[in-house]
Write a protein that binds this DNA or RNA. Structure first.
Lengths: 332, 332
DNA sequence: ATTAATTAAGCAAACGGTTGCATAATGTCA
DNA sequence: TGACATTATGCAACCGTTTGCTTAATTAAT
C-alpha cells in the first residue's frame, strides 16, 4: 500500500517558523521583499520538513504552469531526438519542464495532444506540424506557439533550409560527372520535403542535369530498399534521399542488386543523423536539428518572458557533409 | 501582443446553463450522477463557449495531475526512442500526459528532474537510472516509481534480460568457429552492461572459448572505432559490443585497418536498433525496448488505478538476430 | 520633534475546480 | 396513504498558493 503521506504545505512551514504563509510564499518567489534573515529562517525550516511548493496550487493562483509542450511527428525518426534533447536542456535552464507528445504523423492525434497540452503549458513547440493552418492559428491565439519546419506567416518559426545543402549536393554530384539524379521524396505534406524537391529540380536545370522525382512512401528503410529498382531503371547514377533512413534503404537495395556504392552509384542522405554512426559513412546534408531545437526553445522562453510577439522567422542553413557514399561517374 | 483572453470557467458555464457549478463539474467527471438531459445541456454549452476544465484547479482539488513522468539517460541513444514512444501511447490511452526528462547520464541531473517532476506527476518511470538506491527509494515512498533496467528489490521493475540473447550470440560465434571473443563494454554502472559482461564470461567458460573484456568509454561510435586496435591486438576474431552504436564504430575501425567483416572478423551489436536500418545489416541482440516501455507504462497506470503495490519484477527476454556481420572463422 | 518615506510582514480574497452533506422531488411498497 | 428509498441537484468548505492592500516599525527629511 502506498501511504497517503501528504506533502508538507506552506501553512505548516509558516506555523513552524512563526510567520504568515504570505511570508513563506515570498521567501520562495519574491525573496527581495523580505529581510535576509527571514528568508533564511524560512528556507531552513522548509528544507528540514521537506516542503516543496505545490505546483498545481501555484499554477492555479498565477496561471503559470512552468511547462512547455513539445509535439513531434515521430520520435523514432533520428532527426528528432537531438532536437528534443536541446529543447529539454534549454527549458530546464529556464526552469521549465517539457511535456512531450508524439503525433505519429496523424493530424488528429496532434490536435488531441495540443488540446490536452494547451491547458497546462505556457508555450507550445510544434515540429513539422501536420495540423491545418487554421488549427495552428487557433492554438496560437491561446498561447505562444513556435513552429519548426513549418512556414506560417505570423507564427514564430524555425526553418531548416535545405536549399543551400541540396545545392551543394547537386554541385558535388555534377562535379563528379553525374548527369541524371533522382530525388527520393518523403512525406508529401512536409515543408522540408517540398523544399528539397524544388531545389533539386531548379538546380538540375541550372547545372543542366536531368532530374527525376521518385517517392518512397511511407518514408522508411523498406521503402528506400524497394524503390531502388525504379531508380536504376530510370537510368540515374545518383540519388538524394529525403532522409538518412531512406538513404540507408537505398544502399541496401543497391547492394542487393549487386550495384556498388559509390563505384557505380552515389547516394546522399538528408539530416545527417546516421552518417556519422554508420559504416560506410553516408554523405549527407546536415540539418542542425539540435540547433533548431535550441532556438525554438529560446524563442519560446523569450516570448514568455517579455510577452512581446513579433513575426519571427529563423532560417538555419544546411551543408553537405561529404563522406564515403558518393564517387566519380563514370568510373575510370 | 498576446491578448490575455481568459479561458471560460466552470462558473460561466453554470450561469449560462442555469445550474450550479457542482453540476457542471459532475457533467465532466461524474456524469452518472446526473440526468442524461442535464449532462447534454451542460456539455453543449461548454462546447459552445469553449470551456475546458482547468487542469491545475482540478489537480489542486483532487491531488491528481493526470501526468506521468519519464526520465531517460540519453534520448540520443537509439534504444530510447521506441521506449518513449510506447510509454507515450500507452499513457495517452489512459488519458495521461507524459513529462519527459533527459538526465544525460548525470545522477544529479536525474535527481533534479525527479524532484521537479514528483510534484506534478502521479507516477515516475526511470529508465536505466543512475540514481543511488536511497534516492530511488526516497521517491518511491512519495509516488509509484517504475524502474526499467535497474534491479532494486521492492520497486516494480522491468528488466531486459540480455542473458538469453548473449548466450545465443556466444553459441552462434562458437558454431562459426571463433575461439576468442571480446566483449566491448559500455557504462560501468549500467545494470545491462554488467549483465552482458557476466554472461559473456560465463558462456565463454562453458563453451571453452577465450573471452576478453575491453571498455569503450564513453560508449560511443568513436570509442568503438578507437578500441579496434586493442581488440585486434588481443588476437580475438569476434566481438560483442555493448550496443549497436559501438558495434558500428567497430565496423568502421575494422574497415580502416583493412580487416573485412564478416570475412576476417565478426561483430555483434546489442539492442538491435540500428541493425535493420543500416547497411551492411548488423547482427544484433534484440532488446524489445518498445515492449519494455509498454509494460512499464501499463504497470504504472495499473498501480495508480488500484493503488495496490506488490513486488513486481518483469523480465523480458532478448534474442539474437543474425544478419550480415557474423561469419565463419577461419575463412575457408 | 514632527511628518513623510521606506521597509517588513500580515490579512484575506482570489484562482477554478471537487465533493461530503443536505434537500427537494419522484418513485415504491405495504 | 404514509413511510421509506432513490434520484437529481445545490450549498459551501476545501485544495495550497499568490498578491493587492494594510499596518506597524524603522529611517530620513525638514
Amino acid at each position: 500500500m502506498v501511504s497517503k503521506r501528504r506533502r508538507p504545505t506552506i501553512n505548516q512551514v509558516a506555523k513552524e517558523v512563526g510567520v504568515s504563509k504570505a511570508t513563506v510564499s515570498r521567501a520562495f518567489s519574491r525573496a527581495d521583499m523580505l529581510s535576509k534573515e527571514t528568508v533564511e529562517r524560512v528556507l531552513k525550516v522548509a528544507r528540514e520538513i521537506g516542503y516543496v511548493p505545490n505546483q498545481a496550487a501555484r499554477a492555479l493562483s498565477t496561471g503559470q504552469h512552468g511547462n512547455i509542450g513539445l509535439i513531434v511527428p515521430d520520435i523514432a525518426n533520428p532527426f528528432i531526438p537531438p532536437l528534443i534533447s536541446t529543447v529539454q536542456s534549454q527549458s530546464e535552464e529556464a526552469d521549465y519542464c517539457v511535456f512531450l507528445g508524439n503525433s505519429d504523423e496523424l493530424p488528429e492525434r496532434e490536435d488531441r495532444l495540443a488540446k490536452r497540452f494547451s491547458g497546462q503549458v505556457e508555450g507550445l513547440i510544434l515540429v513539422s506540424s501536420r495540423l491545418s493552418d487554421d488549427r495552428i492559428r487557433h492554438y496560437a491565439a491561446e498561447l505562444p506557439v513556435i513552429l519548426v519546419n513549418r512556414d506560417l506567416e505570423g507564427i514564430p518559426r524555425i526553418l531548416i533550409d535545405s536549399a543551400v545543402g541540396v545545392t551543394e549536393a547537386m554541385a558535388h554530384l555534377a562535379s563528379l560527372g553525374h548527369k541524371h539524379i533522382v530525388y527520393v521524396s518523403g512525406p508529401p505534406k512536409s515543408w522540408s520535403n517540398t523544399q528539397r524537391k524544388k531545389t533539386v529540380k531548379s538546380q538540375g536545370k541550372r547545372l543542366n542535369l536531368q532530374t527525376t522525382n521518385i517517392a518512397a512512401n511511407p518514408p522508411s528503410y523498406e521503402a528506400g530498399f524497394k524503390v531502388v529498382e525504379k531508380i536504376v531503371a530510370s537510368g540515374a547514377t545518383a540519388a538524394i534521399a529525403f532522409d538518412d533512413i531512406i538513404a540507408q534503404g537505398l544502399l541496401a537495395g543497391l547492394a542487393s542488386m549487386g550495384i556498388e556504392t559509390p563505384g557505380q552509384f552515389s547516394v546522399i542522405g538528408c539530416d545527417d543523423v546516421l552518417g556519422a554512426v554508420t559504416y560506410p559513412q553516408l554523405t549527407s546534408i546536415s540539418s542542425a536539428a539540435g540547433e533548431a531545437g535550441r532556438i525554438a526553445a529560446r524563442t519560446c522562453i523569450e516570448l514568455l518572458e517579455n510577452k512581446a510577439m513579433s513575426d519571427i522567422r529563423y532560417v538555419l542553413d544546411t551543408h553537405l557533409v561529404i563522406r564515403d557514399t558518393t564517387g566519380v561517374f563514370p568510373q575510370k
